[in-house]
Design a protein around this nucleic acid. Structure first.
Lengths: 338, 338
DNA sequence: GTGAAAGCGCTAACAC
DNA sequence: GTGTTAGCGCTTTCAC
């Protein structure tokens, strides 16, 4: 394999390599007579010709490589996004390169530089910080890039995410409908758009219901179980009354649940709990966790589509900001207030 | 950026591009006088030269790209392996390309061909089937490749996996110690080495304990919750007595648990259950699932190391087969027989 | 509509 | 030690 080259196909079809190239490339196929196209296509098929994308890339200054930058594939939030992107990219003849950064700024920079040196055609970035120098540089340099899941303050790059505000509103509405009036939010870190958006939406939703509980809002240090546990500890220590918690994501919810349990507060008996992201298998937990589901795969796919459009037509249109629909998955961790 | 080319550096340093190339390449640096090396290095630094790996790849037929082929990153079994491999590869200057195949033979072939066309230097393959034509071809063609997690019957490629047999033995020993004498195995599909190995090890372990239960073995159609549920249905329908189940993996265990619950058999009250792979958050389930943990990240890392050794020195040594240690995580889904 | 020729940026073989 | 010369396999002017 990878033996047969364009010249071989051309020889077999009895044409010049240049002609064979034109015949095989959809873009230039019209410049060639249908008969020749057929002959070349046949020959290519028969010989099992697979174009050498390295050579092609050298000539066209394109690598057909797209870098996807995530904090950690091990976090179940990201694999669906990766797969969504992968599908679109593969279909378009691109190859996905995956990089984990562990939310470390230096690693992010190093990896992206590395991929840029490789001639990567563009980036799908799921690691955006609210204030992000690296992404600002990337935007300034005109490197094709699309953000998923997390946005930046400046919003100068295209972004695809879930409709966080609606998600939070659904969660709060649900709790209010169950009779809760003292609802806390233990949200994500303030250096992520998701953390900020969800917290802002929480405040707003609570106000809209005429509840006074705006001081029951915490930003956890990270989207981790441990950070959630700590935040819940602070909440308990504060002595404030609460009967429900909207967590920044499912991992935070896990930590919250753990702390509550240790403190002898049952869920959903005494405290109702809602997560975010709807990780797989939440229905099997004790108690099954109510969570806001984001269309992760579609987010990845959409990001890939927008990126490819940018790569193929490197105009400087204003960056699109698209928010995809979310859904509240109601499970047993939320119950009527007693 | 990616503007400055070798010729620019050479011009700035007052040498021929060929010389500049030699000076910059660690492999050939000794052929150049130290003074020249310094001048070239300086110039490169000053201009911010970043080598164009596409051009380099075209000339050297090396891409510094390694393909990792997994069934589905969405399955929590694989992300840790990906990260383990990624770490080693990045450190060695290679870039990881990820491909999901959904266990579909045609997709596997297509993706691998595609990556080969890209000049991928080697493959880490986590999708091996017990009889695998594609991998046989790859081995025959001398394409550098290493298998992780799943092996092939022919064992003609290097392989890194967990010590399945020990894992199963630990599980069975544990159940026997709890007094169980009627233990079933609802294992993985027979076209995977893991399915076969675990089933064989199960039979052997059971025999070693002098238990007669060798007919309580099923191969599920897939490593999925649904397949597990179906297999459990068959087991129940067979009317055979059993007080414990060793599942082929955690997902199968989920399906088994579901079927058992629906059938009114409590776990661990009436049936003890053990999974395989120790997915994250199993301790939060109801009941917390006992499972055999594999060193997934280390498997990925080890596979990457072996692959790189092959890529750098493409000799034809006999393929190493390494088995890494496993651990039984005992949780509440296993209890003494009543 | 097709052939000819000129490279993309780099490295490796061969001179000197 | 360094310059020279050829390409790697492809695309893309430019002729005809």
């Amino acid at each position: 394999m990878q033996r047969i080259k364009l010249a071989d196909v051309a020889r077999a079809a009895g044409v010049h390599p240049g002609t064979a190239s034109r015949a095989l490339n959809p873009q230039t196929r019209e410049q060639v007579s249908p008969a020749t196209v057929r002959r070349v296509t046949r020959a290519a098929q028969r010989l099992g010709y697979v174009p050498n994308s390295v050579a092609r890339g050298l000539r066209t200054a394109r690598s057909f490589l797209i870098g996807m930058v995530v904090p950690d594939v091990t976090n179940p939030l990201f694999p669906p996004m990766v797969r969504g992107a992968e599908k679109v990219l593969t279909q378009a003849g691109y190859t996905l390169v995956l990089t984990d950064t562990d939310n470390d700024a230096a690693t992010e920079r190093r990896q992206i530089e590395l991929l840029r040196a490789r001639g990567t055609d563009g980036f799908i970035v799921a690691t955006a910080r609210w204030e992000d120098d690296l992404l600002a540089e990337i935007a300034a340099a005109g490197v094709p890039a699309v953000l998923v899941n997390r946005n930046t303050a400046s919003a100068e790059l295209p972004y695809v995410g879930g409709d966080e505000r609606t998600g939070v509103r659904l969660a709060v509405d649900h709790l209010v409908a169950l009779g809760h009036r003292h609802i806390a939010h233990l949200g994500g870190p303030a250096d992520t758009s998701t953390g900020r958006e969800r917290a802002a939406a929480f405040r707003q939703s609570v106000l809209q219901h005429g509840l006074p509980a705006t001081d029951l809002v915490w930003a956890c240090a990270a989207y981790t179980e441990q950070a959630g546990a700590e935040a819940a500890g602070h909440l308990l220590a504060s002595g404030r009354e609460f009967t429900a918690v909207v967590a920044g994501n499912d991992l935070i919810a896990f930590g919250v649940l753990d702390t509550l349990t240790r403190a002898g507060r049952s869920c959903p008996g005494e405290v109702s709990l809602i997560g975010f992201n709807d990780m797989p298998h939440l229905d099997k937990l004790a108690p099954p966790l109510t969570s806001v589901a984001l269309p992760l795969a579609e987010m990845g796919a959409q990001a890939a589509r927008i990126l490819l459009a940018r790569v193929d037509a490197p105009g400087r249109e204003p960056p699109t900001q698209s928010l995809l629909g979310v859904e509240l998955k109601v499970r047993a961790s939320t119950a009527p207030v007693t």
